[in-house]
Design a protein around this nucleic acid. Sequence first.
DNA 1: CTGATAGCGAACAGTTTGTTCGATTTCTAC
DNA 2: GTAGAAATCGAACAAACTGTTCGCTATCAG
Lengths: 193, 193
Amino acid sequence: MKPVSDDRRTRRTRHLLGAALVELMLEKPYEAITIQDILDRADVGRSTFYSHYTDKDNLLMSEISRVIHALDVNVESAGAHRSLLPSLELFRHVKQQRRLTQAFLWGRGADMLTRGFQEQISSHIQVSIRSIKDSETGLDVPLPLIANFAASTFVVLIRWWFEHDLRQPPEEIDALYQKLVMPSLHTLLRESG
Amino acid sequence: MKPVSDDRRTRRTRHLLGAALVELMLEKPYEAITIQDILDRADVGRSTFYSHYTDKDNLLMSEISRVIHALDVNVESAGAHRSLLPSLELFRHVKQQRRLTQAFLWGRGADMLTRGFQEQISSHIQVSIRSIKDSETGLDVPLPLIANFAASTFVVLIRWWFEHDLRQPPEEIDALYQKLVMPSLHTLLRESG
DNA sequence: CTGATAGCGAACAGTTTGTTCGATTTCTAC
DNA sequence: GTAGAAATCGAACAAACTGTTCGCTATCAG
């Protein structure tokens, strides 16, 4: 039976399972984590897990959504509306949430994270571009492709950053990002404006 | 016992297993493929599999290497030495090998493919840049990062292409690639030159 | 032809998965 | 606080997959 209500119980269970998964992902690769591991770590009954999630992947997706949403809220509330892309705020958030990010940065999680970024960045850029040129029909590179490009470069940079133990300040990483991504965007906008 | 010789037998077995994996990856996601599936499809005995590969991942890696190597040979022999990056040749090859590429484009395979591209592109760019400026020490973006950037953008474009059923000719995809990646590279090289 | 080597396939123990169900605990609403 | 509803527990289960072993057979290279 699926839980229908939004009890203190169901919230507790979901939180325990999510937290357990994240903890485990910091210790070993996602693929090596077994549902039994999660159950043991969370101290939750087997049948309870399956009443909330269909799958290990299902749980992962749910956690990624949480992470993305938190990031969205944080970045949005930092008042990053003026820039074409709130990249610096994103890097700051990522550093602040280093443990959480770390867990989702490799293996299966990276794909989903990229996807999440993509949607967010896509809508952000869409708004920015509209404010500049009122319609994106003049672009000779499709907007979703641009968003995908920006998002995956984002993930590349974050990974690189973590591989270097987050030694650099967010501002420096953002500078690299700007150097890689912005020339193209500016060229595209200039040509189509 | 591991096979030591390079028999007609061992070659046949390895080929059967590799082909079976690729076939299956065209039908369902890599994670859903079981070793048993591969054995059934290849019509190879269980113990034989384990005498050649340790793992499903091991087999996958081996196939990726094959793909990357074939691509390397093909592109290299197309005489793509002059350009900063033989992107057009790469896109042509990808289209020509569409079925093979398709199989490795999603899930686990994409990561490894990106990694493979990365190494190849990295060395290519390294050579190109050396021929332009004799040393890359003046770059304010690390070369491996640039290579990673170029490689992952590459994969983004290939994916996008396949999502649109390869409707566009390679030249058009390459044009998009140029627009996304080249402005940054040129800026970086100009500034450091 | 022959000696060496690879493949076969059945059998096996050990995991993991996903499901079921009755007993128990915890919640919300009153 | 009590009652009724709902979630959790946990043990048990069949099914599937994994990785290994071993004696027999088929195939290879020279």
